[in-house]
Simulated scan of single mutants.
Amino acid sequence: MNSTEASIALNMVPGVGPVRLRRLLEVFETPEQVLLAREGQLRAVDGIGAEVAAGIAHWEEKVDLTAELARIQEFGARVITQQSPEYPRMLQEISNPPIVLYIWGELTERDQQAIGVVGSRKTSHYGLECAKKLSYQLAYAGLTVVSGLARGIDTAAHQGALAAQGRTVAVIGSGLMDLYPPENQALAEKITSSGAVVSEFPMTFPPSTQTFPYRNRIVAGWGSGTLVVEAGLKSGALITATQALEHGRSVYAVPGQIDRPTSAGSNRLIQQGAKLVTGAADILDDLRILAPEPRKMSTPVSAIPLSTEEQSILASVDNAETPIDLIVTKSGLPMPKVASTLLALEMKRLVKQLPGQQFVKL
């Protein structure tokens, strides 16, 4: 048994969390030695009670490590520990970093420069558009967008990063083989081609109300800061923002309408000192990251490289206000493709979105 396999086994023992494992490693030095320790030796470690000590000493009675390793291999995932070079360096700095991370996809050195983007599951059109645009801009600037694959803002954040052909990481509150929400399975598969879906839970571990706060601390601790796009007063996104502050990270928030319950939490964060964000430049400036040079107004449209879909959709936008439904009809492309491509064209400053999902050519 190697160190990674021992870490996987310990991660599956009930009651053994990151804090207890750190205390055990201070005494036994390696995960393998922890599993080999006698029950009395384990009980002698500060903070390790009789129940946890018994669970570790007799771990093979409850943990089927062979089956778990087989599931990991068959699924096409892999597991990293804090000793792995890919393990997010900033995540190692929090008080309770995950014992292991199950990775579906690939992590790169670029993913060390990241920003969390979170918000409510129940959101407005305004919130979704802000999440997509800001995530597009942040990913285009080179930051990896880390979010939770949940409905609403999280989904929009991943979509925006993908539309920019940037990097995004989805941290889920369940095992990789029990992905939640199930309707985001296709999005998760797409993320693995430009990032990774990540979990600290065993492969078949089910989602629950207890697992999502664990997921949130990873989102909050992975990068340099957390952006709250839209959140009610009781939103889990506020818990993530609080965790980010506890980790010593910056917190950013998008202002919303004062009469919308979905904006009450994010507006409250701004009152409490979160940096107000109206564009990605506010975050990039704060983190001292240079944004890519915007296209100069004198650059002719013909000199900007466009995909076939971008050319078709740009041709479908008039110089006057053009509804998105009309753009769909003219281009003959499905609504999701039109929406993501319009976002790309807007970032290239070729079209502008107006209220009511109207677009105009610049």
Rank of each mutant, 00 (worst) to 15 (best):
E321Y: 03
F212L: 02
L314D: 05
I289E: 08
A291T: 09
S266K: 05
R249L: 11
V254W: 11
L314N: 01
Q271I: 01
S235R: 11
L314E: 03
R249D: 06
I289Y: 13
P300L: 12
L290T: 14
R268N: 10
L245D: 01
E321F: 06
S263F: 06
M297E: 14
T262R: 00
L290G: 00
E310A: 10
E310C: 05
S235M: 10
S250T: 08
A291I: 00
Q243H: 15
A231I: 15
L276V: 10
A280G: 13
G273R: 07
A320L: 10
A274D: 07
D285W: 02
T240P: 00
K296H: 13
Q311N: 14
T204A: 02
Y214A: 03
K275V: 09
W222H: 14
S298M: 13
Y214V: 14
R217C: 05
R295P: 01
K296W: 00
R295C: 00
E230T: 12
I218A: 05
S208W: 03
L233D: 13
L269V: 06
H247S: 07
A220W: 02
A274I: 08
P213D: 02
N319I: 03
L233E: 09
D318N: 14
P292S: 13
I304D: 10
A280S: 12
G223F: 01
V317C: 15
E246R: 14
T211V: 07
R295I: 13
N319T: 10
R268C: 01
P213Q: 08
R249Q: 02
A220E: 03
K234L: 14
F205M: 04
Q243L: 15
D282F: 02
F205H: 10
A253E: 05
S298L: 09
P206Q: 00
I239K: 09
V219E: 02
P255F: 01
G223V: 15
S266M: 00
P300E: 15
N319M: 07
P292T: 09
R295S: 06
I304R: 08
T204C: 09
R249V: 07
R260D: 15
Q210N: 08
K275C: 03
A231G: 11
E321C: 08
V229H: 08
P294C: 10
N319E: 04
V229S: 06
K275D: 05
R217N: 12
N267K: 08
A315W: 03
D285R: 08
S224A: 13
D286H: 12
F212R: 01
V229C: 12
Q243K: 14
K296R: 12
N319G: 14
Y214W: 10
T242H: 05
L227F: 12
L290N: 05
S307E: 04
R215S: 02
I289R: 12
G265V: 11
F205Y: 11
L245T: 13
S302G: 02
A231K: 15
V219S: 07
T240D: 01
S250M: 02
P294W: 07
A320Y: 01
T242D: 06
S235E: 05
K234W: 00
A320N: 06
P305R: 01
E246I: 05
G236V: 10
V229M: 02
G279N: 13
R260E: 14
I313L: 09
